Amino acid sequence: MSQHTGDPRGAHPDKRTLRREFLAVRNALPEDDVRETERLVAERALDLAELATARTVAAYVSVGHEPGTGALLDALRARGTRVLLPVLLDDNDLDWGAYEGASSLVRVRHPGKMALLEPGGERLGPDAVLAADAVLLPGLAVDGRGMRLGRGGGSYDRVLARLAAAGAHPALVVLLHDVEVVAHLPEEAHDKAVDAVVTPSGVRRFN
C-alpha cells in the first residue's frame, strides 16, 4: 500500500488541498478499474467477520468514482442483513432509511451539492444509526493509524459523535481504492480512527 504522505512537495497541506488531490486522482481512474473495484471490495467486505455477524449495517450509496457499493448493498440484503442508508438533511446531518433494493432508491438534488441516491421509504430518524453493528464510512483516504479523510461536509463527524455520545461502538469500516491508503494524514481533535479499510487488494485493520 502506498506510503505517499498526501503531498508530493513534502510539505503539510491542509485537508482542503488534500481533498482536491485525492479527488483528482480518483476522478482520473478508468471506468473499467472502478467497476472491478466494486466487485473486489464487495467480495472482501463480505468476508469481514464484523459484517458477517452484523444484524444491521449502516452503509451508503457510492457516488462518482468512489468504490462502488451497489453489489455490497445487494449482497448484504440478500443474506438477511438490515441495511440502513443515509438521507442528507438541510443542516448536513443524516437521517436514515432502510434499503429495499436498487429500485427503492430515489435521486435527490440538494441545493449546492451533487445529486444523491437516497432510500425512498420511511425516515427512521438520525438516531437509527445507533442500532448498527457496523458502519461503512465513505472517505477519500485513510492513513496507517486508521485516520480517515472525508469530503469535508461534516455529516459523518456528526454520526460518529452521535455514536460516541450514546456509548455505541459499531465496527467502523471505510471502503477505498488501494492508492488511497497512505502513510499519514493530518488530524483534528474530533477525528476518530476507523477499525478497518477494505480495498481491492485486501483488508487492513487498525488498533
Rank of each mutant, 00 (worst) to 15 (best):
H12T: 14
S104F: 07
G146I: 10
N92E: 11
R55P: 03
P111F: 07
Y156W: 13
D14H: 09
L29Q: 11
E187D: 06
R44F: 08
E66N: 06
H65R: 15
A132V: 07
G152E: 09
D7L: 02
L137N: 04
E50V: 14
E187G: 14
L89E: 15
V181C: 13
G146Q: 07
F206A: 07
L105H: 04
L89C: 13
E66L: 09
L124G: 06
V174F: 02
D32L: 11
S201P: 05
V181T: 12
M114I: 14
L40N: 01
D91A: 05
G150T: 09
V197S: 06
V203Q: 09
T37R: 06
M1L: 13
V108Q: 11
D133I: 03
E66W: 01
L48R: 12
A164S: 14
P126S: 12
A131K: 07
T5M: 01
V87I: 15
E43W: 11
R77D: 09
P119Q: 07
A71T: 13
P13T: 07
D32Y: 00
A168W: 01
A102I: 05
R39M: 04
G167M: 10
V198C: 08
L136I: 15
K192A: 14
E31H: 11
M147V: 14
A115Q: 02
G97W: 03
A164V: 06
E66Y: 12
Q3K: 07
V34C: 15
S155L: 02
E187C: 12
L73W: 03
G152M: 11
V142P: 04
R151D: 05
V57D: 01
G121S: 07
A28K: 04
G112M: 11
S62K: 07
R44K: 14
D157F: 11
D74G: 11
P200H: 09
H110N: 12
P126D: 02
A128S: 12
R158L: 13
L88P: 01
R162H: 10
V57R: 02
A24W: 02
R9L: 13
A28L: 05
Y99C: 08
P200I: 10
L23Y: 02
S201F: 00
V179A: 12
A161S: 13
E180L: 09
L175N: 11
L94M: 12
V179K: 00
L137V: 14
G139P: 08
P67I: 07
L124D: 05
R9Q: 12
L73D: 01
R145A: 15
A42P: 00
R79V: 04
K15C: 08
